[in-house]
Nucleic acid binder design. Structure first.
Length: 591
RNA sequence: GGGCUCGUAGCUCAGUUGGAUAGAGCACCUCCCUUCUAAGGAGGCGGUCAAAGGUUCGAAUCCUUUCGGGCUCACCA
C-alpha cells in the first residue's frame, strides 16, 4: 500500500504542480493512533513546489489521490499531515494473504552463511547473569538471521586454558582432598568454581602476610607462593606435562558436563565448538609473515606491533619480546581459520560485552590492514553490562548472580504464580513442571531481550521478575487464551469459513500490525536486535487483548464475523508463537 | 589525559531516515469477572527528554559547549 501511495504522490505532484520532487522527500508513515486514518503523507517538503500553504497543499493532493486510487476511502488534513483511510476490503485482502503464507514474515534463502559466536565461557567457574544476556542474545540473533534467510552456524570458543584454570587446579590439589562432582553432589562447573574462590582466599592471606613482612602490595601479589605455583603449572601445561594435562582434562570435563546442563536449561545450543587450547597458538605465523612483509613493525626489544596510526587507535602489540602471543594474536588467527574452514562465510558475529569494544575495533582494523576483504563482514554484537540495583556485579565481592541459581529461582516463582492462578486441570506432573519452566524462563529471556542490546540495564533479582505488564508471561498468556478460544470454538462446532465480512476498527488495527511483521523481522536482522521483535510482539498482543476484551467472538450473531474473528485470532497466535521462538521463548497452549 | 558511549515519568524501558499533543510497564488511585482464561481490559496521577546555545517550516533525535555516569587506551586474559 505504501508503494501505491508513494507512486500516487509523485503522480499527483506532477499533475497538480508540474513538479518533480526529490523522491527522498516523500515520507509515508503509519498514522498515529490519535488521528483518523491509516497512512500519512507529510506535505511540508512539497510546499516549495506547490507555492501554497500546508493545509491547501494537503487538501489538493488528498483530493487527487482519493479520486485516482481505489483503495483510498477518505482523507483528512491536520496541519501539514495528510492522513488517508484505506478501505476495509484492502485490509481483509491483506489478512487473507497473511493466512495463506507459510512461515509468514520469514524470508527464504539468501544462501549466505554467517557465523554467530556467543557464550564463550572460561572453564574455571560457572556462568553468571551476564552470560545469560549473552547467550539469549546470541541465540536469538541467530534465529533472527535464519528468519532473514541466512544459513547460520552457531559457535563458541571455550577458554579452557590459561592462568585462571591453573588457579582452580592448584587450589583443588591443595585443598580438594579428591572431591569430585559425584562425591560432593555439586555441578561440575560449580565445583571447579568453588576452588577458584578457594585459590583467591588463600592468595589474599599470603599477600597480607607478605605485606606484614614489609613487602609492598604489587610485589606481594607477584611473590605469593600460591600464585607462583599457578604460574609454574601454566608453564608445565604448555610443555605438555602429563600429570598436569591429566588433571586439566579431568577438571575441564567436570566443567563441560556442568555447562551442558546450563545450556539445556537455557535452551541454547551450538553447531561448532572451538577450544582455546587448540587455537591459542594460531595467528603467530600470520603475524610473523606480516612482519616479513612489513605490515607490522618490530621494536628493539623484539616485540612486534601493528601500526594503527592511520586510525585514531593506538598501536597494538601482537607478539611479546619473548615471542609469545597475546589475546589479539589468537583472535586474528582464529578468524582466519574460520574463513578458511567455511569458504562460503559472509559474516562473523561476535557476541561479546561492550567492555571489549576497543578490542574488536582493533581486531577488525588489523584484519583489514592484512588485506582480508571479509573483515568488513565481521561484526561485534556488543551488549551493555547488567547492573544490580546496588551497582556492578563484582566477583571479588561475591555479588555475582549465578546463572543456574537465578534460573532455578525464577522457575520456582513461576511455579508459585501458576499454581495460584493457572489452569492446570488435566495436566500431569511432567506437563506442569514443563509449564513452570516455560513461564519462568520465558519471563527471564523476554526481560533480558526486550531491552536494546547496546544499552546497559538494571536487574533486580530480589524483586525477581514482574509477570504482569510488558513481560514474557503476558504474551504467553495471550497465546494460551487464543488456543483455549479456538479449542472451545471447535468443540462447539463453529465454522472458520467466511466469504463476505465486515470488519471493525479494532480488527483493522490488528491486521495493520500483522502486516508489519515481515519488515520487523528484517529490521531486527539489520540491527541485530531481538528487542525490536520483543517490542513488536508486545504491541501486537496489546492490540489483540484490546480486541478480545471489547468484542465477543463466540456470542456474535453474524456467523461470518465469528468465522473471521476465529481466523484472525488463530493467525495472531501463529505470529505470536513464531516471533517468540525468534527470541528463544516457547509459548504454552494452556496456562 | 586521548577514544568510545550513555543521560527520556518515582523505578524499569520504548521512541524508525528529524515530523502531529513525547509513549508503555511497574508503583499509586478509580472502575470492569452470572459473558470466549482477570497473568486481562478501561480510565486517572505522573515530564524543563541532564543543562545551555545552534541548524530549520519542524529537534528527545543532527552540531557545539557544559555537567554527570559507564567502558576502554597493558609485553592481563
Amino acid at each position: 500500500m505504501e508503494k501505491i501511495l508513494f507512486n500516487k504522490v509523485v503522480e499527483g505532484l506532477k499533475h497538480l504542480y508540474d513538479a518533480d520532487v526529490n523522491l527522498k522527500q516523500i515520507q509515508i508513515q503509519q498514522t498515529r493512533k490519535e488521528f483518523a486514518g491509516d497512512l500519512t503523507v507529510v506535505v511540508f517538503p512539497f510546499l516549495k513546489a506547490s507555492k501554497k500553504g500546508p493545509e491547501q497543499t494537503a487538501e489538493d493532493l488528498g483530493a487527487y489521490i482519493q479520486e485516482n486510487t481505489n483503495e483510498v476511502k477518505a482523507f483528512n488534513v491536520v496541519k501539514g499531515f495528510l492522513n488517508f483511510s484505506i478501505s476495509a476490503d484492502y485490509w481483509i485482502e491483506v489478512f487473507n494473504k497473511i493466512s495463506l503464507t507459510n512461515n509468514y514474515g520469514h524470508s527464504v534463502g539468501s544462501s549466505k552463511t554467517v557465523m554467530v559466536e556467543y557464550c564463550s565461557p572460561n572453564t574455571n567457574k560457572p556462568l553468571h547473569l551476564g552470560h545469560l544476556r549473552n547467550n539469549f542474545l546470541g541465540f536469538s540473533v541467530a534465529n533472527i538471521l535464519k528468519a532473514n534467510g541466512y544459513k547460520v552456524i552457531k559457535t563458541q570458543i571455550i577458554n579452557d586454558r590459561g592462568i585462571h584454570i591453573c588457579k582452580s587446579m592448584i587450589a583443588w590439589q591443595k585443598f580438594g582432598e579428591g572431591e569430585t562432582p559425584e562425591s560432593s553432589g555439586l555441578k561440575g562447573d560449580h565445583l571447579v568454581g568453588k576452588y577458584y574462590v578457594e585459590f583467591d582466599k588463600a592468595y589474599k592471606v599470603e599477600i597480607a602476610d607478605l605485606i606484614d613482612g614489609g613487602m609492598d602490595k604489587a610485589e606481594a601479589e607477584k611473590e605469593a607462593p600460591i600464585f607462583k605455583e599457578a604460574q609454574l603449572m601454566l608453564l608445565k601445561w604448555e610443555e605438555g606435562d602429563e600429570k598436569i594435562r591429566a588433571l586439566w582434562k579431568k577438571m575441564n570435563t567436570w566443567v563441560y558436563s556442568g555447562l551442558d546442563v546450563s545450556y539445556e536449561t537455557m535452551g541454547v545450543d551450538f553447531d561448532e565448538l572451538y577450544y582455546e587450547s587448540d587455537t591459542y597458538l594460531l595467528g603467530k605465523d600470520v603475524v610473523e609473515d606480516g612482519l616479513a612483509k612489513k605490515e607490522f613493525y618490530q621494536k628493539e626489544d623484539g616485540s612486534v606491533w601493528a601500526d594503527l596510526s592511520h586510525t585514531k587507535l593506538d598501536d597494538k602489540i601482537l607478539l611479546r619480546s619473548d615471542g609469545t602471543s597475546v589475546y589479539m594474536t589468537q583472535d586474528i588467527g582464529t578468524a582466519i581459520e574460520r574463513y578458511k574452514k567455511h569458504t562460503d562465510l559472509s559474516g562473523l558475529i561476535y557476541t561479546v560485552g561492550n567492555e571489549q569494544n576497543h578490542h574488536f575495533k582493533v581486531l577488525f582494523t588489523i584484519l583489514e590492514k592484512l588485506g582480508y576483504k571479509w573483515a568488513e563482514g565481521c561484526y561485534h554484537l556488543s551488549y551493555g553490562m547488567i547492573e544490580l540495583p546496588e551497582g556492578k556485579m563484582k566477583s571479588r565481592e561475591g555479588t555475582v548472580v549465578d546463572a543456574d541459581d537465578l534460573m532455578e529461582m525464577i522457575v520456582a516463582d513461576a511455579k508459585e504464580m501458576t499454581q495460584e492462578r493457572g489452569h492446570l486441570d488435566g495436566m500431569n506432573e511432567n506437563e506442569r513442571e514443563e509449564l513452570y519452566s516455560t513461564i519462568g524462563l520465558g519471563g527471564l529471556k523476554y526481560f533480558l531481550l526486550k531491552v536494546d542490546p547496546k544499552k546497559g540495564m538494571v536487574f533486580n533479582p530480589a524483586e525477581s521478575i514482574d509477570l504482569n505488564g510488558n513481560t514474557g508471561p503476558f504474551i504467553q498468556y495471550a497465546h494460551a487464551r487464543i488456543q483455549s478460544l479456538l479449542k472451545k470454538a471447535e468443540e462447539l462446532g463453529f465454522s472458520k469459513e467466511y466469504s463476505d465480512v465486515e470488519i471493525n476498527a479494532k480488527e483493522q488495527e490488528v491486521i495493520k500490525l500483522m502486516n508489519n511483521y515481515p519488515s520487523v523481522i528484517k529490521e531486527a536482522g539489520i540491527a541485530y536486535s531481538p528487542a525490536i521483535i520483543a517490542n513488536y510482539i508486545y504491541d501486537l498482543v496489546k492490540e489483540f487483548n484490546n480486541f478480545y476484551q471489547t468484542v465477543s467472538i463466540l456470542k456474535e450473531e453474524d456467523k461470518q464475523k465469528v468465522a473471521f474473528r476465529l481466523c484472525l485470532s488463530e493467525q495472531i497466535g501463529v505470529i505470536v508463537k513464531s516471533s517468540m521462538l525468534l527470541l528463544g521463548v516457547n509459548v504454552p497452549d494452556k496456562m
